[in-house]
Simulated assay, not measured.
Amino acid sequence: MMRRIIVPLDGSTRAEGALLPAAHLARATGGALFLVRATMLPMEYAWISADTTMILADAMEAEQKEAQDYLNHVLTFPCLEGLGVSTSVVQGDPATVILEYAQQEEGDLIVLCRHGKGEAKRWLLGSVAQKVARHSQVPVLIFHEEDALPMLSTNWGMSVLVPLDGSELAEEALQPAIELSQAFSPADTATLHLLCVLPLFVQYGVTDKEEPPLMHEAQRYLKELEERLLRECPPTLHLHLTSSLRCDIEVAQAILDASAKGHLADQNIPGCECIAMATHGRKGLARWAMGSITERVLSETKRPLFIVRPTSIRKMHSGFHRFHEGDSKNGKTQEEWQQPFVGLF
């Protein structure tokens, strides 16, 4: 359940675009918001030598005060009325402090708007969003600066597109996607479209004769997955499911087309308001690396992108950090710890 929601802000109105959907999520889940503002040394003071520490300290204190004053102003926004909201100003590299803050506050979700930028001395949320999405251990919901988010009313529902490659890792985006759709939809409803893209690359050895059996396997997979989701769905939830299969050498483009146009092969499906993806799924039936696909979709989509880190990947990541903290009791080398991360997003 997404109840502890982290919202990074950089002082720009574009970054503030994440506040409305984050507030809606908090109300839908009975959760709270945690607003964080990262501060760095103002550019105009970068030339100051170590001998002028007092001037530097004054500059940093002024920056901290300005950031806190800004967050206090944000607290007056109408969309936050009645919600539990905490604010923090943290000094350091924006992406790093956002990730550390999310861990410290035991966040369930990070919501941000990419490409937000203020004055020249401010940090750019475009690159920060990409770094946060790549390394976050909790789900990240990213809105584009050009998102025209519909009015959040009881008459509006969010249809979520979930790309799958046949792996259990990719499927870990399903349950969070259902929760997200439910939070943005009329009471007790959720709408998902399951998309399986088969990348028929020559190097994979797929020939024209082998294509139909592979497609048959993918179609069977989608059908069985739909049946399982409906079977496991709580009786109080009305889950609307559709699915489609596409063969395309450009997996990311197929996902982008499906979300924007809703036209797949000889099927016509409604476009989806959001894309939900796991960051890694490389042993599935289609054998495409979900991580690199996620990165391309993030860079090109104009729709909200919901990125989920699979549990097994989070555990490997934790093991990697334990190595750096001196936990070498298993006798593993640094290279052995790093090996599982080859090819990750």
Rank of each mutant, 00 (worst) to 15 (best):
L19E: 12
A265E: 15
F77K: 15
Y70N: 03
T52A: 14
V308T: 09
E179D: 11
V297W: 07
Q175F: 14
R282K: 15
V206R: 10
L161Y: 10
Y101W: 07
A258C: 15
V74S: 02
S328F: 02
P235T: 07
Q219S: 08
L125Q: 09
T96N: 12
K223R: 09
A59H: 04
S318W: 11
S127H: 11
H238G: 01
V202W: 12
L214M: 11
G11H: 06
G205P: 04
E106H: 08
G17D: 07
G284Q: 07
N330R: 03
W156P: 03
T191A: 12
W156H: 14
L245E: 06
G166A: 10
L229W: 10
A258K: 08
A26P: 08
M43Q: 09
L83I: 06
E211C: 01
Q339V: 04
L298Y: 04
P186M: 10
A173D: 14
A120P: 00
L112R: 07
I55A: 14
K329P: 00
L305I: 15
A18G: 04
E66P: 00
H280S: 11
M1I: 10
E145K: 13
P340Q: 01
I275S: 10
T191Q: 08
A62F: 03
S299T: 15
S49F: 04
V85F: 08
H317C: 01
K261A: 08
A59T: 03
P8K: 10
R3D: 10
A59M: 03
G82R: 12
R282S: 14
A289Q: 15
V90A: 05
D108V: 01
F34P: 00
L214N: 02
T29D: 06
G157K: 07
G92E: 09
R231E: 14
D248E: 13
L56F: 09
L9G: 12
A148F: 06
R231N: 15
N155Y: 06
A173Y: 11
L180Q: 11
A32C: 03
E232S: 11
L222P: 05
E172C: 03
S181W: 02
L169V: 02
P340N: 06
V85W: 04
V342P: 00
G205Q: 05
A59F: 04
V160M: 09
F34Y: 12
I55Q: 13
Q103F: 02
I307N: 01
P42C: 11
D208V: 14
A190N: 05
E250C: 02
H280K: 08
F306N: 05
G262T: 07
Q64K: 05
T301P: 01
M2A: 12
A260V: 09
Q104W: 14
A148S: 14
S318C: 06
L56K: 11
T189H: 09
A46P: 00
L230F: 01
M215E: 13
V97Y: 07
R231L: 14
L35I: 04
M151W: 04
M215V: 09
T311R: 10
L239R: 07
Q91W: 00
R322A: 15
L75H: 06
M43K: 05
L9A: 11
D165T: 09
G331F: 10
L152W: 01
F320V: 02
A23T: 04
H240N: 15
I275F: 08
Q103C: 02
L180F: 13
I110E: 07
E217H: 06
E336H: 05
K209V: 14
K117L: 14
A57W: 00
A148Y: 07
Q103T: 10
